[in-house]
Computed example of a mutant assay.
Amino acid sequence: MGKLTTCDDAKSNLKLDWDPRDYTVFTCPNEYSFAIQKNVDPISVDMVAHNTSFDPRKDEVVHKCMDTVLQYDELVPIRGDHRPNWAKYGEYLYVPVQRWLHNLEHGAVVMLYHPCANQYEVNSLREILTSCLYRHVITPYNKLSHTRPIALVSWGARIEMNYVDEEQVVAFIKKFARRAPEDISRNGLYDQFLVRPAQIISDENDSNICVDYRLGH
């Protein structure tokens, strides 16, 4: 794990995971965004809390070459087999789950948002994550629900939200970033439709998570 292989150059046969002609994955089909509902609480999952024998730092999965279809039982997977090459850190027009799962394996936090999510909430979550962590990936993800259309995912954990609670978001990032099988900061090779590369915050290793972020700023 964490090594490049000849069966995936991050350029060939990419349609196996996503055909770029399918713009529905990053486009809202409706004129209006989903409503903000302050009475909708976030839903969080932490595999450690539900399974005391699960150790995210010792978890093992498999790298699957670009001749194998990868599908997942969960709508928002938090672990699983994935492609050998991970995505370069940053924000994408769209990056498929088969790539960003590998980023999670390296200690990243991935921000997902439904294309119809409220743009103010998307911007708020983006601002927090990019101020806290170099190892992040941001992408639309249309499998999120209309009631909780924004999410953060790490290896073995996720939180799905209707709106951004700044304190909860920062707490999630601090707790779950770098809690993964491989604490690797090296950037990935996959960069199809990368629109904004990640910027280093504390250092490339994310030694101090959210070091310059202040609640309520």
Rank of each mutant, 00 (worst) to 15 (best):
T52S: 15
P181H: 10
F193H: 12
D206F: 08
S33M: 04
H82N: 12
H217R: 12
H114A: 07
T52E: 14
I78A: 02
P20K: 11
L112R: 02
E91I: 10
N13E: 12
W155Y: 15
V25Y: 10
I184A: 10
C116V: 03
C28H: 03
Q199H: 09
R79A: 13
Y141M: 06
T52N: 13
D203A: 07
C28G: 05
V109M: 08
L112E: 00
T147C: 00
W86H: 15
P77H: 04
A35L: 14
Q98N: 15
V76L: 15
L215G: 11
D41M: 13
M111S: 02
P56H: 06
S202T: 03
I159C: 06
D206V: 02
D73V: 11
E60N: 12
H114Y: 01
K143I: 05
I209Q: 03
S124K: 15
Q71N: 14
Q37I: 10
L75R: 14
K88Q: 15
D59I: 01
D8A: 09
V137E: 01
Q37N: 15
K3A: 14
R83M: 02
D183N: 11
V61Q: 10
N208T: 08
E121Q: 15
R83V: 03
C116F: 10
D206Q: 03
N205R: 09
E31Y: 10
C28R: 04
D191I: 05
N142R: 15
V137K: 00
D206E: 08
D212E: 12
K15Y: 09
Q98V: 10
L16D: 02
P77Q: 05
P84D: 04
I150C: 04
V45E: 13
G107H: 01
D55P: 11
S185R: 07
V40I: 15
N118A: 02
R135G: 04
P149H: 06
Q119P: 01
E166D: 12
N118I: 06
R21A: 13
Y32M: 11
E182Y: 15
H102Y: 01
E166H: 07
V153L: 07
E127Y: 10
Y141L: 02
E121V: 03
G216V: 06
I209R: 01
A157C: 11
N51C: 13
R179E: 14
V137Q: 01
T6H: 11
I209H: 03
Q192C: 07
C132I: 02
P56N: 11
N142C: 01
V137C: 06
V122F: 04
R158L: 11
E204K: 13
P20C: 00
S185H: 12
D46I: 01
V48C: 10
G216L: 04
P56R: 05
G80H: 04
A87Q: 01
I184F: 06
V170Y: 05
Q98H: 06
A157N: 10
C210F: 05
Y113Q: 06
G2R: 10
R135W: 04
P197Y: 02
G90W: 06
N142D: 14
V211H: 13
E167L: 13
H106V: 02
V61E: 11
A87N: 07
V137D: 00
E166V: 00
A108Y: 00
F54Q: 06
P140T: 05
S131R: 08
L112N: 01
M1G: 13
H217C: 09
E121K: 07
V95Y: 09
K11F: 09
P84A: 07
V164D: 04
I184T: 05
Y141Q: 03
